[in-house]
Computed example of a mutant assay.
Amino acid sequence: MKKYFFSLIFAIIFSVPAAACLNGETLKLENGITLYEDYDGFIPYGHSFWGDQELKEILLSLDKDYKETKKIEYLSDKGLILIILGKYQEAIDLYKGIEKLHPNRYSTASNIGTAYELIGNNTEALKWIKKGVQLNPSSHFGSEWIHVNILKAKIKGEKYITSQFLLEKDFGKDKIPKSDMDRRSLYDFRASLYYQLNERISFVQPKDKIIAHLLFDLGNVSYLYRDKEDAMEDYKLAKKYGFNDPILDERMKLYSPKVIDNVERKVIREVKYQIKPTRRSQLMGMIISVFALIFSGLIVFTFRKKIFTMLK
């Protein structure tokens, strides 16, 4: 009896779900390999991909899987790995072959467009990205209209690198950014802009005028959303990417962080960007964990006399 009783207690206590770090956007390949897994939050640091050696091994694995199954998804994933490795023309040729075999796949159009943009052929990139939007208007959380505008600005010239042209919004030139968007609209707009920047920063290193301008506007949206700490990080990234308008310095002065040491700052950032925003399923897991612990405590309390007797 003693053995089974304690087994029950320990089973309840140690079966409580572990609360791991909460993560953001994830991309899993057809073969089950996770290509990247981002933190939650709205500061676009880009994806952390595997190293070149690991990516080459993944390529071999995808080749093998495709030969065995003939599933086009393996071939499409191979093209994505080629893009990450910087083999843009090889990826374009591969995707054009996929287009002939299986026309009008969204991922084909989107990835060809991305590869063309990365080799500097913005006209072809725009054609394929537009096709991708037609095939799947809600792709990338409905943010691909920003990608279309970016490509148009690249084709038209630098004078089109403005908030109004790229985002069809303007946050003013005053010290404090302004907008007539409500809080829900700000959240959706911020999410779309973050997504586009996070993808772009994964491939484009500083300095870049379009990314710099979009980062500045992401900071403006974050400020309007009353997330001043995120706004400051976005502004810092904008400066890193080459945004040099004096208004940036003015808006960076809007945030005055409390004085904390580097260790505390690191801990705060780790906590913040791993738990925001909390997903419903993960929140439920945490609630279940708490209730399981409470239930375990009640069992111990209820049978405390028997437990103490057994321990004697």
Rank of each mutant, 00 (worst) to 15 (best):
T278I: 12
F203D: 00
V290H: 04
F295N: 02
R184A: 13
I294W: 14
G242K: 01
F189Q: 07
L197G: 00
K276S: 13
D249M: 14
D188S: 13
A212P: 04
F216N: 03
N198P: 03
V263K: 10
V290M: 11
F291P: 00
D217T: 06
K236W: 04
V267Q: 11
H213E: 14
S185I: 05
F203K: 07
Y187R: 09
E233T: 03
M252A: 06
R279E: 09
L283Y: 12
T278V: 11
R279G: 15
K258P: 14
Q282S: 08
I210R: 00
D245F: 12
D245N: 15
I294R: 09
V267M: 10
K272S: 11
N220A: 09
I288K: 13
R251G: 12
M286G: 02
E264D: 14
Y225W: 09
D227W: 03
R280H: 04
K239F: 13
G219N: 07
N198W: 07
Y235S: 09
Y194L: 05
A212E: 09
P206D: 10
F189L: 02
E250F: 05
S192R: 15
L193K: 02
Y194M: 12
L214F: 01
K266Q: 13
G285L: 11
P246G: 03
K266M: 10
I201C: 01
Y195F: 10
E233A: 13
S202P: 03
Y194P: 01
Y241A: 02
A191D: 10
P246H: 13
P277W: 03
A238K: 06
M286R: 07
M286S: 03
V263P: 00
F291A: 05
V259I: 14
Y255E: 07
L248V: 02
R226Y: 12
R184H: 07
R280I: 11
E270R: 08
P257D: 11
D227I: 05
R226Q: 12
Y273T: 13
K209D: 15
Y187D: 08
E250Q: 15
R183C: 01
K253R: 15
K236V: 06
A292S: 12
P246N: 11
I287W: 08
I201A: 00
E270C: 03
L218E: 06
M232E: 13
R200T: 10
P277E: 06
K276E: 09
R269E: 14
T278F: 02
I247R: 13
H213W: 06
L237D: 02
P246Y: 10
P277G: 07
I260Y: 10
F243K: 01
K276D: 06
D227M: 07
D261A: 10
A292C: 08
K272C: 04
M252Y: 07
N220E: 08
F189K: 04
L218N: 08
I201H: 00
I211F: 01
P277T: 14
R265K: 14
D217A: 10
D245W: 08
F189R: 04
K207N: 10
L215E: 06
S281N: 12
F203R: 09
E199Y: 09
F216C: 03
Q274H: 15
Y187K: 12
D230K: 08
V267E: 15
K236F: 05
F243L: 10
D249V: 09
D227K: 11
F189P: 00
D249S: 15
